[in-house]
């Protein structure tokens, strides 16, 4: 059994800090995971081990929670996480074609991240903007009535920004 988990000290301390904010209470696990994911972007194995040690519950329990909720991810997201709404309204207005176009342009599947770390693709169910269907969010920016033909332009804005 590989029994050494190596992590930068500052990261370990940050995670421990989050746990302590919640008084190391196992009942606050979901809140701890939320805060940690918003800090790091994802919840890799090492991070879960640190939380397990800190709040004194088995790592298997934490892994169970992380794999149960689709919000939590063990893979790093892109700098610009793309979420395509697959709710009913968006779906009937062609969300799947939009998704396919993003997949084609970026060469990745749902739940994956591009090699340059810029983009990742996920699906979600309804952002509450059905009037704008089909809806896509990239980071905190919302794109309404996004036709597949516009996908290339949207992406090139981000590539331009990155130089």
């Amino acid at each position: 059994m590989e029994n050494k988990i190596c992590m930068p000290k500052c990261k370990v301390e940050e995670i421990q800090g989050i746990c302590r904010e919640f008084n190391n209470d196992p009942g606050e696990l979901i809140n701890i995971l939320h805060r940690t994911q918003s800090l790091l972007g994802y919840l890799p194995m090492e991070v879960q081990e640190v939380i397990a040690e800190e709040i004194n519950i088995p790592a298997a329990k934490i892994y169970g929670v992380v794999t149960f909720y689709s919000y939590f991810t063990m893979l790093p997201k892109g700098k610009y996480p793309i979420s395509i709404c697959m709710g009913t309204a968006c779906y009937v207005r062609g969300a799947e074609k939009v998704l396919d176009e993003f997949k084609r342009q970026l060469g990745i599947g749902v739940g994956e991240t591009t090699d340059d770390g810029l983009f990742s693709i996920d699906c979600l169910r309804c952002v509450g903007a059905c009037g704008l269907a089909p809806v896509v969010t990239i980071g905190s920016k919302v794109y309404g009535r996004l036709a597949p033909e516009k996908v290339r332009d949207v992406l090139s804005d981000y590539y331009l920004r990155e130089g």
Binding site: M1, N3, K4, I5, C6, M7, P8, K9, V12, E46, E49, V50, E53, A59
Partner: peptide, 8 residues
Amino acid sequence: RKVVICCT
């Protein structure tokens, strides 16, 4: 055989 967190 305990899992330990090593800080780098």
